[in-house]
Structure formats: C-alpha cells, structure tokens
Amino acid sequence: MSIGQFCIRDTVIVGKGDTIVEAAKVMRQHHVGSVVVVEESEHGCKPVGILTDRDLVVEILAKEVAPEAVTVGDVMSFELVTAREQDGLWETLQRMRVNGVRRIPVVDDRGVLVGIVSADDYLEILSTELGELAKLLGREKGREERTRGS
C-alpha cells in the first residue's frame, strides 16, 4: 500500500512570509501542532518547510523573541523530508525514523503538496491492523472448535 492512500489530505498550510502570530492562530483554529510551509508554483503549493508548536516554544518563547519580529521563514525547519504519494508505508516510516522527524509532507510527481502523515497516523494505522490480527486469532480458534469439536 502507498502512503498516498493513508496520508491526511486536508493539510494546514502557511507561507514563509506569514508572521509567527498568524501561524499560531492557524494552528489553534485547526487544532494542529504543525503547519506545512509552502511556496506557490505554477502547479500548486510546494512544501519548503514545517513549523511546529515546539519550534514556537524553543525558538520564540524560550529565547524571549518578540513574535512580531520574525516570520515563519525565520523559524521553520529547513531540512524538509518528504514522501512521494507512491512510496510505501514501510519505506516512508523508515525515512521518518532515519531523519528523526515525526511528520512528513506527501508530494506528487511534480513536488506539489498532496497531504501529510505523522507518527500519530502510523499508530492509528498499526493499531487498526493489530486489532484485525487479534480478530483473526479469535476466529481461528472458533473455527477449530466448530470443525474439530471440544
């Protein structure tokens, strides 16, 4: 299965020139802990970074920087790791692990943002799959009892 099948398509975005306060308000409005920073291209929005609530705390609040003095582009994570829609779930998870990132934007063949996937999304996917596996084990026992008796 591809990551494109599982990524969250309703991605919350901001621009590099947006203020930190604007970005924080967008995060609050959408109840998310991160936003994908994008630049417009002829094909659509291309991700150039990520801004997280942790970035706001560590880079702005902890350093007592005035939020109005910096833009999203000043604080965002610059070493952006992305996945392509057709990349596999395992391949994407390994890319996240190797790069030490909890979330990864998903792009199409032109590099246009199509979604995002996070470690939390993986936990949800895996818990669902493990639940199905547990049901299988229970059904196997029931089938054996019906076909072979007690």
Rank of each mutant, 00 (worst) to 15 (best):
T82P: 07
G73S: 05
H30Q: 11
G88D: 15
A66S: 15
T71L: 08
M96H: 10
V65L: 05
L126K: 04
E39T: 04
M96I: 04
V12Q: 04
E59R: 06
T11K: 00
E68F: 06
V37Q: 01
F78V: 10
G138C: 12
G49D: 02
R148E: 15
D108T: 08
K141P: 11
A119F: 14
V101N: 09
I20C: 02
V37C: 05
V38L: 04
S77V: 07
Q5F: 07
P47N: 06
E145L: 15
G4Q: 05
D109H: 10
V58W: 00
K46Y: 03
K135M: 09
E140F: 04
I3P: 03
V36C: 06
Q5V: 06
H30N: 15
M1I: 05
T19I: 07
S2T: 15
L136A: 05
E79A: 13
E39P: 03
R54K: 12
E124T: 13
Q94I: 15
S41K: 10
E124V: 12
D74M: 03
E124F: 09
A62N: 15
E144C: 09
S77L: 11
E64Y: 11
G33I: 08
V58P: 00
G17Y: 07
E68Q: 11
Q29L: 08
W90T: 14
S150W: 14
T82C: 07
D121T: 06
V12D: 04
V21P: 03
D121V: 03
I13N: 00
L80I: 07
I60F: 02
K63M: 04
S118M: 10
T71F: 08
R95A: 13
K141F: 12
V81N: 00
D108I: 10
M76A: 04
V106Y: 01
R148S: 15
T52D: 01
D55K: 01
L123V: 15
T82H: 06
R139V: 14
K63P: 06
S34V: 03
E124I: 13
R146G: 08
E22M: 10
V114S: 08
V72T: 03
F6N: 07
G131A: 08
M96N: 11
P105W: 05
P47M: 09
L113N: 01
M27S: 01
I3K: 01
